[in-house]
Simulated assay, not measured.
Amino acid sequence: MRRIFLLSLEIILLTSLLPAPQAAAAPALQSGEPDSGSVLCPTGLYIDAPDDCLPLGPSAYLASLAQTGIPWPIRPLPAYKPERALANYPYNYFKVEDTGTYVFPSLTSAASDATSGWRIGPGQTLYVAYQERVEIDSRIFYYLDNGGWIRGDGARVGQYDPPFQGLLFSSTPRNTFGWVLQQVESRLTPGYAGAYTGRGYYRFNVVQVYATQSADGVDWALIGPDEWLEARHVARVEPRTSSPEGLAATRWIEINLFEQTLTVYDNNRLVFATLVSTGTDPYWTRPGIFSIYQMKPAETMSGTFEADRSDYYYLEAVPWTMYFDDKRALHGAYWHNKYGYETSHGCVNMSMGDSHWLYNWAHEGDVVYVYDPSGRTPTDPALYGAGAP
């Protein structure tokens, strides 16, 4: 009996020295989407994660778009084109050869071998407005609006088809937009290493710009989901909701020299925007705050800047002219289609349709605000002359 007691005591002592059994480890919590049992949220953009569904799949994609500035649903611009009839040329135009031409008092004298009379040119930019084209013995003559006759040494000016026209707005857009300046293909990511999307854009196509990012030393514009263009290929407009600093008006015309754009605001609301061509170096369009002081439906402009008169220009019937800074004016340009690029000798060149629309909208006394956000255009008044087309 004593032996059984001692054996039991030894078993108890040995058992107390053994380590306690470990509890089974809890399974690790899964991260991300569980294999089953969860519900995807309806497609939408969720600011806070819902408790009863998972905002994954399409919703996660929309969230990533929102982080880059692209809203959902993507809103079209509240914009539409002005009437096409505004772009019709109010005159018939003829380009005179650079060697110039004589203007004769009669058709008879023009058809003779005379080489005397009033002379236009020589010069690089010579254009006249005419009323009638006459053919005599296989020779062409033009009767001008000013009452003279010229020989047909040159070419008639045709209208651009389709003509470039800006945009009218029913409300102020919420984000930046602009015009593509040359044929270009978008990339999936910013930078020259980004793969092409296969989607091409052409001059004067309108795009919305949701963000900009620097890559490879240049700025890139996000124009859609996974679509980037070099920012220099887009002339951008950043709509305002109030007048610029230092400008008390609620109605004004604004010219961005860096982007080469013109915008029109009425009651602090964007109503019109387009591309323009302003002055080239050293004939810049001067920054500042001005007012339209004279409006003329047509104007003849001529002059030269070089001592040898090699840059002489003569332009008849320049349409829809609005002077705002000495001889600098807003006006239509029938002699080029380079809107979005600096081209002029200080004036603000617009397409025929855009200048016609602006002329109808504007009044003498309206404010013209000219600025260069890049700071490249000089502001020293001593550098500026009277200006020219």
Rank of each mutant, 00 (worst) to 15 (best):
Phe141Val: 14
Thr343Gln: 13
Pro105Val: 04
Leu270Ile: 07
Glu33Ser: 12
Tyr334Lys: 02
Leu29Asn: 13
Val209Tyr: 00
Pro389Glu: 08
Thr125Leu: 10
Gly147Glu: 06
Asn337Ala: 14
Glu342Asn: 08
Asp48Met: 12
Thr321Pro: 07
Arg139Asp: 11
Ala25His: 13
Gly375Ala: 02
Leu45Glu: 00
Tyr314His: 04
Leu229Gln: 03
Val370Cys: 01
Thr274Phe: 08
Gly246Lys: 06
Glu83Ser: 12
Ala231Gly: 02
Thr68Cys: 12
Ala193Arg: 11
Gly346Trp: 09
Gly178Arg: 09
Ala386Cys: 01
Glu254Pro: 04
Cys53Asn: 06
Thr176Asp: 08
Leu222Asn: 09
Pro173Cys: 03
Ser242Met: 13
Pro287Val: 03
Ile12Pro: 12
Gln124Cys: 05
Val96Glu: 05
Tyr341Met: 01
Pro27Asn: 12
Leu262Pro: 07
Thr300Cys: 09
Leu86Lys: 12
Cys41Asn: 09
Glu227Gln: 11
Asn268His: 12
Gly37Arg: 13
Ser116Gln: 03
Leu18Glu: 11
Leu126Gln: 10
Leu77Asp: 07
Asp145Met: 14
Tyr384Lys: 13
Ser116Ala: 04
Gly154Asn: 04
Val207Gly: 04
Gly224Tyr: 03
Glu306His: 11
Ala273Trp: 15
Lys95Tyr: 09
Leu77Trp: 09
Pro244Leu: 07
Thr377Ala: 09
Glu342Phe: 10
His233Met: 02
Val184Asp: 01
Tyr371Ser: 02
Gly117Phe: 11
Met301Cys: 05
Glu132His: 09
Asp113Gly: 15
Thr250Glu: 14
Ala307Gln: 01
Thr377Asp: 01
Met350Trp: 00
Trp357Asn: 02
Leu6Ala: 04
Gln165Pro: 03
Leu17Ile: 10
Leu107Asp: 00
Ser36Asn: 15
Leu144Ala: 11
Ala26Arg: 15
Ser36Tyr: 15
Thr99His: 02
Ser291His: 11
Arg236Trp: 08
Tyr192Glu: 07
Ala307Ile: 13
Leu86Gly: 10
Asp325Asn: 00
Tyr46Thr: 05
His331Phe: 04
